[in-house]
């Protein structure tokens, strides 16, 4: 039985303008899982992510971390932000330092005072993310893929338990996008919990262990990818479409149950080839 890492209990959030962004959300994120948060534009995905990092404080409701109710004082905020790392959608809105080295050291320098240890940690993560040769470069003058790697390195260097990525593949070419997901998967294998927000249903279907569907600040559906993506009506209500794999599987075998859906492209091709051979 996997325990919950972070929980929102009847959490709501209103912007200072009065507009409701999150409406009484009850959400529990299991530890060590890969979780995808889906929803149309304006569904409240980014706001929800900022609630989890403590940037926004719920106007109503509670945030629990490892079963303990979270208090929004200065010390607790530092602690939460170290444990819940967030990589923003636009890398340019995250990069602040004049060099890659200083960018990766930024969070660590805010958290710890042991400069020697910080420098060792920075070198370790620069090496891990293949950024050692770029460490003196200005991050603003690099490619989108490199910028995303720097943002990831700068957050992961703080060694968070939950890694949140807001649209990790936005503005990235397929190769950089794949590299980003490979880096995230490697973190998951080390036991880190991953939460990404995305519009890409195809990516979420094959990648996630758990899918959360959001509409107008409320959770519309939550479950395994097969459960959530088999329900075309709910997806349409959320402003999304079924993944291509699900559509193809259902075209091939209408009325296929959620649990019978293929997990990936290879499984679908295998099934189709098997059926073709049987027919022949």
């Amino acid at each position: 039985m996997v325990g919950s890492l972070i929980e929102l209990k009847a959490a709501s959030y209103r912007y200072p303008s009065g507009k409701k962004a999150i409406a009484e959300v009850d959400l529990s994120l299991p530890e060590g899982k890969k979780i995808a948060l889906l929803g149309a534009n304006g569904a409240g995905k980014s706001t929800l992510l900022l609630l989890l990092n403590g940037i926004y404080k719920p106007t109503n409701g509670e945030l629990h971390y490892r079963g303990k109710q979270y208090r929004y004082n200065r010390k607790a905020l530092q602690e939460l932000r170290q444990k819940v790392g967030i990589v923003f959608q636009e890398s340019d809105n995250q990069l602040i330092a004049p060099s890659v080295y200083e960018e990766v050291a930024f969070g660590l320098n805010n958290l710890y005072s042991d400069k020697k240890w910080i420098r060792e940690q920075v070198e370790k993560y620069l090496d891990y993310f293949d950024l050692l040769e770029l460490k003196h470069h200005s991050p603003h003058q690099l490619s989108s893929g490199q910028k995303k790697r720097i943002c990831l390195a700068s957050v992961l260097a703080m060694e968070p338990e939950l890694i949140i990525c807001d649209e990790p593949a936005s503005n990235l070419d397929p190769q950089s996008s794949r590299a980003t997901f490979e880096l995230l998967d490697a973190q998951n294998k080390k036991g880190k919990t991953l939460l990404i927000s995305t519009h890409n249903v195809n990516q979420a279907y094959v990648w996630a262990d758990l899918v959360i569907l959001l509409k107008e600040g409320a959770v519309l559906s939550i479950g395994s990818p097969k459960q959530v993506f088999s329900d075309a009506e709910t997806l349409a209500e959320a402003g999304l479409e079924q993944p291509l794999l699900v559509k193809l599987a259902r075209m091939h075998q209408p009325g296929m149950e959620a649990e019978e859906l293929p997990e990936n492209e290879a499984e679908l091709v295998n099934r189709l080839t098997k059926n073709l051979c049987t027919d022949l």
Partner: peptide, 11 residues
């Protein structure tokens, strides 16, 4: 947005 990103890294 930059300020938010900095706060998220304990600035």
């Amino acid at each position: 947005q930059l300020e938010t990103a900095m706060q998220a890294r304990c600035a």
